[in-house]
Design a protein around this nucleic acid. Sequence first.
RNA 1: UGUCCCGUGGUGUAAUUGGCAACACGUCUGACUCUGGAUCAGAAGUCUCCAGGUUCGAGUCCUGGCGGGACAACCA
Length: 573
Amino acid sequence: MSEKELNNGASMEEEKISKDFIRQIIDEDLKEGKNDGRVHTRFPPEPNGYLHIGHAKSICLNFGLAKEYGGKCNLRFDDTNPVKEDVEYVDSIKEDVRWLGFDWEDREFYASDYFDKLYEYAEDLIKQGKAFIDSCSAEEMKEHRGTPTQPGTESPYRNRPVEENLDLFRRMKAGEFKEGEHILRAKIDMSSPNMNLRDPAIYRIKHASHHRTGEKWCIYPMYDWAHGQSDALEMITHSICTLEFENHRPLYDWCLEQLNVPSNPRQIEFARLNLNYTIMSKRKLLELVQGKYVDGWDDPRMPTISGLRRRGYTPESIRNFSEGVGVAKRNNIIDIAKLEWAVREDMNKRAQRAMAVLKPLKLTLTNYPEDLVEEIEAVNNPEDESMGTRMVPFSRNLFIERDDFMEDPPRKFFRLAPGREVRLRYGYIIKCEEVVKDPGTGEVIELLCTYDPETRSGTGTSTRKVKGTIHWVSAGHAINAEVRLYDRLFNHENPAGDKEGRDFKEFINPDSLEILENCKLEPYLKDMKTGDKCQFERLGYFCVDTKYTTKEKLVFNRTVTLRDTWAKISKQK
RNA sequence: UGUCCCGUGGUGUAAUUGGCAACACGUCUGACUCUGGAUCAGAAGUCUCCAGGUUCGAGUCCUGGCGGGACAACCA
């Protein structure tokens, strides 16, 4: 390649890079020499639930930014509300972030690490006369707050002397009061059009045990008092959060302005990820789990990271998806097809292929020798020659997919039908000579076919063309497995945002899980381990379930179907 | 009758910061094919929410509308 071409290539590539608004902000900050040229982000989940695909977007953004700019990204648990939080969630979050492929190194932090400091900051604010102890009830406070269109009124306790505030606050800390008796509020502006500035609560009494600090505290900082300060203490430069915190930014900045903090983080808000046919709120996901509508947080139908993992999604596909959706400030609902595309894209290149019959139909080759077993060579992955080939046993008695036979086929059905020919993948061309039915029910129970010995695949003699190729498994060699097919959990495109206000649970898809007990797999698959993935040819990508697989029984989850043109054609009818 | 944020093909994101609206997913053709997969080639679809204004020139700037979202936890 000439130097000119190289230059062109480089400049063209640079031209192609269009940066999202966050990267543009960071570029500007860097250009202006802010933060000594550092980029330091953080991913700050509250450990009150499992992470979902929306968090994945945030994780990829925060850790991705740090990587791109040669900076760092912290993992910080925003654990300021002990009654909702639990170590179970801490552990799952760490597992999920790690699984996605990100490393916070030694920077695992907790807002609770800063409780002492946050308390000091609060005393500081009181001493400055910018915070006061309110002794109103929650109801009274609510009345005083006003509405978005009407200003609030000041609390009768607002002008308590500093010394009294300090004394009360210390006694709150010492546990002298019951929950709700007193509360620390910042003294800002009760008539602010921004509700967050109407003397927001910053410290409340909670006689609750905290999953990390135990009984040490009975007062806990509110999010607004903890988050910015935690960012500053961790020397975060860009504090990236979702849109609903936009109105909190003035408060975030206000808090930091009052205090002598070690750095000056900047909050930036972006639009959270939404997927159609999916819910994405922790509260609602929790409801599904607790109401046993699903099998747990890691149910393969859940949009949680652990659910997607169990379903067979790869970290690469989720990262790729997260980057593909982009970052902006407008509300969005992304088509679930985009997520599915991302796994297919990844799996197509890497997945071992194999044959599996999910709904078996007996097929006998009447002109094939009774005791002959041939070993047929099959390609492991047409996309990757280095994965080699394997041998598959072929015999007189086979199983094929029920869906691959129709007694009275419609137009454009290329598969097996009475009198029709089809190729058995990697094997021979066969012809359906006779259909055997159950005399009672009339159900098709067996196909009697003949094979053409001249047409074995790979022999060079198989010049005949047939329209269809179907997969199969030798009945005498097949191994049994259970296969679980998943469909979307909701029938409603936007279950949480129904125009008529109906509850999201009304839209649960009753057919989202189909369990097939009697599936037949080619023997090559017998050593598959939990979590292993492969493609069942013509059917989709599958993985061995981590929960229900036992020594005796293999259980597969269908991650996603293959793109299915026939399904589209037949649905149109 | 508030404040803040946001309006670009079906969906999502761009547009070198004022210069012929592009990319991805989806959709539809066709080629190829021993996976109705993959791959390849191609097509349709946005005149940028509306109305004014500034300008030689506006998706981009200004004004006014309209529409959507967030905010009235001692949640985060």
